[in-house]
Amino acid sequence: MSQYILRRLMIAIPSLLGISVVLFVVLALAPGDPFSELATNPNVPPEVQAALRAKFGLDDPIYLRYLHWITAMAHGDWGFSFVSRVDVDTLILQRLPTTLYVVGSSQLLALLIAIPVGVYAATRPYSLFDQLANTFAFIGFSLPTFFTGILFILVFSVKLDWLPFVYTSVPGSGIPWLLEMIRQAIMPVMVLGLFQAASMTRFVRSAMLDVIRLDYVTTARAKGLGQAKVIVKHVMRNAMIPVVTLIALQMPAVFGGAIVTEQIFRIPGIGSLLISSILANDTPVVMAVTFVFACLVVLFNLIADVLYGWLDPRISFR
């Protein structure tokens, strides 16, 4: 098992490198140079400009610049935010926990909805419950998160006035503060979680239906185990294997949804940081946040791989 994890790690590193190359090439191809503002600013003397260009290695050939950049990234030197006047890594580390908290809770919510609904629907295919679940799932993943977010605000904040629609992160402590923190996270987590739950329910249902008609399920039933035990121990356990992969493939979309959700509810996470830095032309932050998102996707793929190996003995024994 540990060997298997190690092997997956070895596969993850080239893909991280690949992503970094893609990002770097995009940046290098971009018209104009990231320091053009400095370059055109008459107040900056030419020798300072030249020094800056030399410092950032802008006159080197592209592969050298890439090596330069990637080693700096690896050393934790992620650059300096032009706008906020702090190091990019400090800025990101400040914002990252909020994003992970929102994304994590919504994934949890999605699983809590999708697994029972998908499993139950699959045990009664074409029943009323199944058809309702299917319809809701279909609507759910056709509704873009920005629209659900707006609908939620409209209903729960504007009309009913139950929940706050702006996320605040005043530090505090005590039960009332904690409750407030939970209360304000309800809508973003719901928006993101329901969106995820919709596609997950479909995955779970179809994976269950694929497994339920296999021979070993009949074997299990022939043992007199009872419906519930057969479904949980024999069908679900096997159906989860493809579901893990499908969920991992969804991760880029999840983080996309997180950016939108953070923007709607003004959650101070890295998604809203990305948008505000784009609007403020803060290139180092834009690059770094994009790279962090890429790392998160790769990390979650890695977790999915490990889960996969744990669920399927045929993989880890190879």
Binding site: D215, Y216, T218, T219, A220, P313, R314
Partner: peptide, 15 residues
Amino acid sequence: GFIFQEPMTSLNPVL
């Protein structure tokens, strides 16, 4: 008791 035709697919692969 029941013995099935396909030994390759009649056993649960993950148990």
